[in-house]
Design a protein around this nucleic acid. Structure first.
Lengths: 379, 379
DNA sequence: CAGATAAGTTCAGGCATCGAACTATTGATG
DNA sequence: CATCAATAGTTCGATGCCTGAACTTATCTG
């Protein structure tokens, strides 16, 4: 029910009723409870053109529970607090070389970051989202492997609970690419909120990760290891990859490969050269578009997702990727003949993952406020 | 609730309660209603080892509503009736060259087949499933395209309703490969019923189709066009495909390609030659295993589905595909290091699709018996 | 100001499910 | 063989979520 308010802030009770199919009576009582729990606030009456009483504008309360997002990157720890409306209350990024340290050392740092953020916040923390660059079992939150951190089999949630007293606040651990996709859906600027509900978010950083969202819900596969696009085979004759196979997408279109082929030291330099129509840079980008297109056509053929959001490095070079990528996809995707594909650049860039982690925590409350409300009443 | 009875026939009311989390009281009343509507029958008391009253064995009623499945193949129309338990009541296959005829001519034949089957049945028809070799929009049941039939934009459901009086009996139109997967799940012989809940069913016939089942539910993608594996790109240097792209799976591992490479006139001959260790046949099969493995590794990496069921032609040559395919998958699938993949041959073979279509119709009642029960009471 | 229109509230009632007490059936034990 | 513990199944009042319909409040229009 709160979802309707989240998707269109300023909606009236009657509007919510129309949207959700519940009766006005039900909505009224639910909204009353939500207001009592400080999840929703009643605003000024809305303007209306015709006759009739004006509805009061409902919106999620900025003073309600906040979501705390933490991203454990390879060389940084980022934190972020968002309120129920999705507005960022605070954000911080701390460079640390996590690769050089064992998991428990890093988690101690993360715990400290959580502690300070929580104590600084005047409002309540309603949930914590932790984004990690690795494969997480969705049922348990167990981190199976994080190659770029060198971690294996870490129970991030339990480790953090040992180190920070969070009571029974929910901690959700998830893959960074997945959270990035959610962040983009909830916090990105793509027309009307709630319009972007079916898409693949591809982010090219050190690896290539994808977050798949269908009908507004993250698609994680059976156990949570889905959406692994980095090692999709795209070129049977391609170079050997660290995973043992040949011609993986990561090897053909990863950030390292682009920069090497373009002869650029970093992404900024690459963008500069593209702007200056540098031949090598353009050729490298074209090649990336081709391979990425091959891989994404597979994704679209399998999942029938009509929109692709380019994040991370790809977002930076999206103008040069767009046409070729769309072309490649259109020829390869079976359903493309009668249904238009869209390619959009990410609007949150590298912030997407933390934002998504934080927003996930509050969205859990929005999706099912009951546990939160009963907990609040009990206290 | 009936799902629990379907999955383990002979279960007691108490067993259902334990399984579903409902209370004994609730189960009792629900079961009573289901018995009244002839959906469930009470059997003999079960044996038990310890003390305590023995539970009555519940099972779905073989006299209850039946599901009617129809498959519109390229050169046949198959029909099939199954009862609630999944037992086949009757089955028929009629060779017709549907390619040579316009859609409405074929649908008239289908309508006739439905009529005769319905009138022969002493029990009630609870739903109709229609399997077509094409892409169906899941929300509407609209057939977008069926390349091998030469059909485009056909509203199969409406056409059939015009031609057969089915009252308000549900008609579900779906892709043949999807129904085949469901058929295999519900009617196949893979250990305990309910054990096969997450798998990809790949059937190699004229095209290559896949049905993806996750958590016992068909995965169709956003609009229903998901699971299209036939045109996954597997070899960037491969031959041109009719779809416009290069090196599609269908061109590399389709039935035609196998037979041509093996120099065999048909699948029977191919199997004979494989049994006789014919070199060309073995080489062709190895090549198929490689390409199929490449494509399926993509599917598994994206969807994280732990089991692959080989249907159609692939089922026939499964013994020769198995090891190489598993090998290819194990090296390419990221999660394979800690989680075993399984490859199974289909047990229903070419019957899978009609069986699945018929079973889908009754499963809809099992999943939500309320509309059926209220309709029954009203009459 | 009357009339029309729409938002929001109140309250009795329906419906599915629950909880707890009850009855029924069975093997084990002395 | 009587009794007991264990388990299956039933009955019935209680509960909680939601609905439907009537009602109150607020606003525009002529």
């Amino acid at each position: 029910m709160l979802g309707a308010i989240a998707d269109s802030p300023g909606i009236s009770r009657a509007g919510v009723a129309a949207r959700t199919g519940l009766t006005k009576a039900t909505v009224s009582s639910l909204v009353d409870r939500a207001i009592a729990a400080d999840l929703v606030v009643d605003g000024e009456p809305a303007r209306r053109d015709g006759p009739g009483r004006r509805g009061t504008t409902l919106s999620l309360s900025p003073a309600g529970p906040h979501g705390l997002g933490v991203e454990i990157g390879v060389d940084y720890i980022a934190t972020c607090l968002v309120d129920l409306t999705g507005s960022v209350a605070s954000q911080r990024i701390k460079p640390v070389d996590n690769r050089a340290q064992p998991a428990n050392r890093v988690l101690a740092k993360v715990a400290r970051a959580i502690r300070t953020t929580v104590t600084e916040l005047p409002a309540q923390v309603g949930g914590v989202g932790v984004a990690v660059p690795g494969l997480v079992e969705s049922a348990t939150g167990f981190l199976r492997t994080a190659p770029n951190l060198g971690w294996r089999d870490v129970d991030v949630q339990a480790e953090l609970r040992d180190r920070v007293d969070l009571g029974d606040t929910a901690i959700m651990v998830g893959n960074e690419a997945n959270f990035a996709a959610l962040g983009e859906m909830w916090g990105g600027d793509h027309g009307d909120p709630g319009e972007l509900r079916d898409f693949v978010h591809v982010s090219g950083e050190i690896g290539i990760g994808a977050g798949i969202v269908m009908d507004g819900v993250l698609f994680e596969g059976v156990r949570g290891f889905g959406g692994e696009v980095g090692h999709l085979p795209v070129d049977s004759k391609g170079p050997q990859c660290s995973c043992g196979a040949r011609g993986c997408l990561e090897a053909m279109a990863g950030q390292d490969t682009i920069l090497r082929q373009a002869g650029a030291p970093d992404v900024d330099a690459l963008v500069d050269r593209l702007r200056g129509n540098d031949r090598k840079a353009l050729a490298a980008t074209r090649s990336v578009a081709r391979w990425l297109g091959t891989a994404l056509s597979t994704v679209v053929n399998l999942l029938d997702v009509p929109t692709i959001v380019l994040g991370g490095t790809y977002a930076r070079i999206e103008p040069w990727l767009h046409d070729l990528l769309l072309d490649e996809l259109t020829t390869r995707v079976v359903s493309a003949t009668w249904s238009q594909l869209r390619i959009l650049p990410s609007t949150l860039g590298t912030e997407a993952a933390v934002r998504g982690a934080a927003a996930s925590a509050v969205r859990a409350i929005v999706a099912d406020p009951d546990p939160f409300i009963t907990a609040t009443v009990a206290v």
